[in-house]
Nucleic acid binder design. Structure first.
Lengths: 194, 194
DNA sequence: TTGACAAACTAATCACATTAGTTTAATATA
DNA sequence: TATATTAAACTAATGTGATTAGTTTGTCAA
């Protein structure tokens, strides 16, 4: 029955995002997605460039999603409070939408200009959070890479079930973030003195 | 040409490890592997339980590989020196055999006893490195999770090309590791004083 | 009303994993 | 030495999923 489902690229990508969150990243198949949209598989090719194109669009979608998420979480906050909010927001995103998060880990195409631009916007949010520490240019780069590594590493281990022992992972996460903040503060002090 | 290629499970798994290192994790297909071994695809089923079985075997293989790697790197070292050696060894492993490293990130089956045992052995190496700091039981867990997160996060961002800016990644890595070590030392001091 | 476009379709192809059943070399045994 | 067993390879067939080509049919504007 009835042609002209109201599909477009956005609705296809959003449905794919739902799919990976609900059924896992390995279930992302065109057939499964088409079924959810009450459409046959080839129809999806009118909106996305096959499976690889869909993955690309989805990665961009998730990245923008994440950017908005962390931006909202950090406005009006500074220093420790901002760093903690940033880290928590990132982690909350990963937990609430695990499929999308997993997608952002999977080799995002670094050559795409839209992806690059959005990634840069995320970097700028983090830089803004570090601004009050008045780090030197190089230290700011180290800090941003460091925080990304910490957060990304912790979350990926957490969602992969890498933490076997049943000790509060929230506590571990904040222990680590606090260690980082303390280190930053010390770096700041060193710079002022030296 | 002909029959009785000298295949067994170990040689198949090793060939798969080579394959993923040389051609990338997405190229891991039975047909491609069979071709390299001068054999038809179904013959591989005599040695591994299909693609999923191969992946499982390969994950275990890589994990043991990694365990030996980090063990060798840390014997005879302690404190800062040992932590740096551990982190560097892990990172070197990821760079030298990127395919295998990527595999260890992909949802390792946590229920398998052999995988569990090997993972535990890796944990014990890291615990041994932290032993001189005389951390409390909980802090030791936090520390181990923290170092794993840092190293894993940094490496995964690095191999994914996540660090766009051309500033020395070695420097960033050691900046971060040193921040961690300083934090640990302070944690140690706090514990002694309090 | 009609023409162009876009969104769906069907049918076919290709790649890959997987299974069933067969052949044959290597090894053990009488 | 001859034979039986086992295991490692094979061929053939099936199923799933992505992809492409070509077709039909709503929708919208002239």
């Amino acid at each position: 029955m009835s042609h002209r489902m109201g599909l477009d690229r956005a609705s296809v990508v959003e449905a794919a995002a739902k799919l990976v969150d609900e059924e896992g990243i390995e279930q992302l198949a065109l057939g499964r997605l088409a079924e959810r949209l009450h459409v046959k598989t080839p129809s999806l090719y009118n909106h996305v460039a096959g499976l690889s194109g869909l993955k690309h669009d989805l990665a961009l979608y998730c990245l923008r999603d994440l950017r908005d998420y962390v931006t909202r979480a950090t406005v009006g906050k500074s220093r420790e409070e901002a760093i903690i909010a940033l880290a928590d927001a990132y982690r909350a995103y990963a937990r609430q939408t695990p499929g999308r998060y997993a997608l952002t880990l999977q080799a995002p195409p670094p050559d795409d200009p839209q992806v690059g631009a959005t990634a840069q916007q995320v970097v700028e949010v983090v830089l803004a959070v570090f601004a009050p520490y008045k780090l030197g240019e190089e230290d700011a780069i180290h800090a941003i890479r460091g925080l990304r590594s910490i957060v990304q590493g912790f979350i990926s281990l957490e969602v992969a079930g890498g933490f076997g022992i049943p000790i509060d992972t929230d506590a571990s996460f904040h222990w680590l973030i606090n260690l980082f903040i303390d280190g930053l503060s010390r770096s700041e002090a060193t710079e002022k003195n030296g």
